[in-house]
Design a binder for these strands. Structure first.
Lengths: 346, 346
DNA sequence: ACGGCGGCGGAGAGCGCTCTACCACCCGCC
DNA sequence: GGCGGGTGGTAGAGCGCTCTCCGCCGCCGT
C-alpha cells in the first residue's frame, strides 16, 4: 500500500480540475460536463481514491450506520454479559431480524452496528454512542417488557424504532404483530382438527405479546364453547416448554391439542408428549408460534403461526430511515398480520 | 433537544479555558491541574457535551469500529441475499462468535459492524467500506473454503483476521482449532465406551476442518485396530445429518457408535437412529462436535467435542487490535485445543 | 542572583470533505 | 453587438476535533 491515501485534492490535481468538481462527480450531483466526468473518473481510477467517511460525516452530519440494539432489562452481572449475546443469538428469531434489517439497509449503503444493552452501563453506552454521532439512529429489540432503553432514547431525542410495543408508552415508532389474531388462528385450527381438550403453553405473561396471544386464543375457544383452557406459563425456551408441558400433562392427561406461544416451547412440548407416549399429531396436535427455523428442522415439522419477522424488521429500518431524514416526525406504529402455516404437528 | 450540539469550543468558553485543555481532560492525557480538570468536567456536565466522533476520527484516523464479516463464496442470487443472514444466524455457532468478539471489543469502547459478503458486489462493498475508513479492520468468518474475501483484504493491505485457516494461503492472521485432536478425542471416547462398529458423519470434505476432524478420528481408530470406518458426508445441517445417518444405517445396520462432525448433524443422526428403533446411547453412542447450544437443548443431551468458540473469537479480536495498533505486523495463527464434554448421548 | 528546566496551558494549523457563493463563459436574442 | 440567462467550473469557508509548538511561570542548582 502507498503510505498515504489519496485525497480529493490529489484526484483534482491529477485530473486538472478543482476539488469541488471531483466531489460533484463522486456524489453524482449537478451538471458536470460528461467529458470532464470521464476525466475525473479516470483520475480516480488511477489514484485509487476512496472518499474519507470521517471527513464526509463531519460536514454532512450523517453516518452510514444505524445501531442495532438488543436490549435486556435489569442489571446482569459482569460474568453474564458475555453470555447475553450468545443466548440472544441462540434464538433463531434474531437471525431473522438481522436479515430483514440488512435487506433494507444494504441497498442504501448503510450498515448495522451491533450493540447489547443488558446493563445500565451498556445502555448509557448506547445513548452516548448515538449522541456522539456514531450512528444516525437505533433499531431496538427488547427482550424484556420493562426495558428502560426506549425511554432513555426518546428522552435524548434520538431517532429510534422499536420491535414490539413498549411495556409502558414511549413516544417512539414501533412495528408489531397482531398477536391476538395469531392466538385466534391457532385456536381455530385446533378446533377444526376436532380437538376437544385443548391446553396452552403461554409465553412469559409479563410480556404483552404473550398476553395477547393467550387472550386471542382463549377468546376464540370461549366463543366456540370452551370457556376453560388449562394454561401453563413458559419462558420461550425449549426447557421451559418441556416443564410447562409436563405440568399440563400431569393435570390434564387427556389433552388432545396444545398451542404454545413460540416454536422453541413447541419443540419442548413435543419432546415431552412423545416421552409420555403420545403421538404428535395423532394423539395430540401441537401448534407453535413464529415459524422460526426450528419449525422446519424439528420432527414432526411444526404447524405454526407465522410472524413475518423479516418484513417487520425491514419496516423497522424503513421507519427509522424516515425519522432520520426528517420525513416523519410523529411516532408511528405498523402492525403486521400473522398467518397460519400448516405442517405436520397439527 | 437543543438545536445545536455543544462543541469543545462551547465547553471551553463555559469553563474559561482553551479548547486544547478541554480536549486533554476529555481524553485524559497529560498533566492538567486537578482544579481545572474539575472546572472542565463541570462545564461538560452543564453543557451536556458529547465529543463528535467524526471530527475525532478525521484527525486520529481511527474509528471505534471493526467490521464483523460473515463471508460466503460464489455468487448467490439477489433473492438469496436476504436469506443468507437468516441462514447464517440459524447456526448457533455465530451467536457464540458475536459473543466472544463483543466481550473483547466492549471494554475497549469498540463496536462490531455487521457485514455479509456472499456476492462479489458485497465483497467489494466490504473492501470499500474499510478503505473509506468506515472501520479499522475486519474480522472474517468464512462459510466456504474458497472464499475470495481474505485475499482481497490482504491485497488491499487492510487489517484483517480470519476464523479458521483459509483454503489457500493468505498472509493474514487467523485463529483455529486443533481439529485433528478433536477427531482423536471422539474416537478415544467411543473406543472406551466399548463400541466396535464405529461410523462417522463427516462435514463437507471441501472444508479443511472437516477433513482434519475425519483424519484425526480415522487415524486413532486405525491405531486401535479399526482400519476401516464407514463415512458419510454431510453439510453441517440437521437435514444433511439425517440423510447421512440414513445411508450409513442402510449399509451398516450393526453400527454401535457414531461421530458426527458437528452438533446439528448429531441431532439429525439421533433422530434417524431413534426412528429406526435404536436407543441412544444404549444401542448406538453418538458424539457430536462444537458443543453448541443444541447440544444441551436436544434429547438426549449430546456428548460432544467442545470448540471454545467464544475464546477463539475474542482472540481474533485481540489479534486484529494488535494489527491495527501496529503492535503486530506479521501474520500470526493461534490454535486452540478441543475438549471432550461427556453428556448423555455417548 | 541568574540561567535553566519542567510542569501547564494556549494558539493555531491542519485532517478531507461539502457546499455556498461567485465568476467565466457561450448561446441566442433584439 | 451588447445583454440576459444558462452552464460549467473555481474559490474558500467551515465542520469539530487533535496535537505540535510555544510561552509562561515557579522552582531548583550553583
Amino acid at each position: 500500500m502507498s503510505r498515504q491515501a489519496p485525497t480529493l485534492e490529489d484526484v483534482a490535481r491529477e485530473a486538472g480540475v478543482s476539488r469541488a468538481t471531483v466531489s460533484r462527480v463522486v456524489n453524482g450531483v449537478r451538471n458536470v460536463d460528461p467529458a470532464i466526468q470521464d476525466l475525473v473518473r479516470r483520475a480516480i481510477e488511477r489514484t485509487g481514491y476512496a472518499p474519507n467517511q470521517a471527513a464526509r460525516q463531519l460536514v454532512t452530519r450523517r453516518t452510514t450506520t444505524v445501531a442495532l440494539v438488543v436490549s435486556g432489562a435489569g442489571d446482569a452481572s459482569d460474568t453474564e454479559q458475555n453470555a447475553f449475546a450468545t443466548r440472544v443469538f441462540a434464538d433463531p428469531f434474531f437471525g431473522r431480524v438481522v436479515g430483514g434489517v440488512v435487506a433494507h439497509l444494504r441497498p442504501r449503503g448503510m450498515h448495522p452496528v451491533l450493540m447489547f444493552a443488558e446493563t445500565p452501563e451498556a445502555r448509557q453506552e448506547v445513548v452516548a454512542y448515538l449522541r456522539q454521532g456514531g450512528a444516525d439512529g437505533a433499531l431496538v429489540v427488547s427482550t424484556h417488557p420493562d426495558d428502560p432503553l426506549p425511554a432513555l432514547l426518546a428522552g435524548a431525542g434520538l431517532p429510534a424504532v422499536l420491535f414490539a410495543r413498549p411495556g409502558r408508552p414511549v413516544p417512539l415508532s414501533y412495528v408489531d404483530l397482531a398477536h391476538r389474531d395469531g392466538g385466534r388462528l391457532a385456536a381455530e385450527h385446533l378446533l377444526e382438527l376436532g380437538c376437544r381438550r385443548i391446553a396452552t403453553v403461554a409465553g412469559p405473561l409479563a410480556v404483552a405479546a404473550s398476553q395477547e396471544r393467550l387472550a386471542g386464543f382463549r377468546d376464540t375457544l370461549a366463543r366456540h364453547g370452551h370457556p376453560y383452557v388449562p394454561v401453563a406459563e413458559g419462558g420461550f425456551t425449549v426447557d421451559s416448554g418441556m416443564a410447562a408441558m409436563t405440568s399440563l400433562l400431569a393435570e390434564h392427561p387427556d389433552t388432545d391439542g396444545v398451542f404454545t406461544a413460540n416454536d422453541l416451547m413447541a419443540q419442548g412440548a413435543v419432546q415431552v408428549l412423545r416421552d409420555h407416549g403420545r403421538r404428535v399429531p395423532q394423539d395430540v396436535a401441537v401448534v407453535g408460534f413464529d415459524d422460526s427455523s426450528v419449525a422446519v428442522t424439528c420432527r414432526p415439522r411444526l404447524t405454526t403461526v407465522r410472524q413475518p419477522v423479516e418484513e417487520m424488521a425491514a419496516a423497522m429500518a424503513r421507519l427509522l430511515d424516515d425519522h432520520i431524514k426528517g420525513a416523519r416526525s410523529e411516532p408511528t406504529s405498523v402492525i403486521f398480520d400473522p398467518e397460519l402455516v400448516v405442517r405436520d404437528s397439527a
